[in-house]
Amino acid sequence: MAAVNEDRLQAVEQLQRELRAITATVEHPNGLCTVTASAKGELRAVHLHPALLGHGAHAVGQVVTETARLATDAAVQTSFNRMALALGDGMAIDVESVTGDAPFRSAAHPVVPPEPAVEQAPPPRRRRAEVVEDPDEDAFFSNPFGRR
């Protein structure tokens, strides 16, 4: 029994080490910034595309902030996945019930409006108004091209 407990403790410590080491690298949807972050939101690396600086100081701050959030969410999700692998889905669901949903299960927070999945259908063709023969119609204001 003691040996089993020892094994469990070692397995838990190993899992904790692995979870601490997990990072995720995410590129902003605009392709101008890449951030590597840990699940605790620590920024391990930031890469800025030179073109991003041309968008101005405010945009740089906003894009890096958004990318950092996406990278952190991805690292948290990776941690959940790793935990589920080690402890089983049941335990992972139990953990979620205590700590809250994993990022990819909870509502998505896209930084840009998502593209429509399919090309937008062209607007419906308007039906031409039916020609009504009106003996009182004023020929001067009528459209000869649409009528004849």
Partner: peptide, 13 residues
């Protein structure tokens, strides 16, 4: 958690 706000000054560019 991730940084809540990152602000960059124009001179930093």
């Amino acid at each position: 958690g991730p940084p809540q706000q990152i602000a960059v000054s124009p001179a930093a560019l």
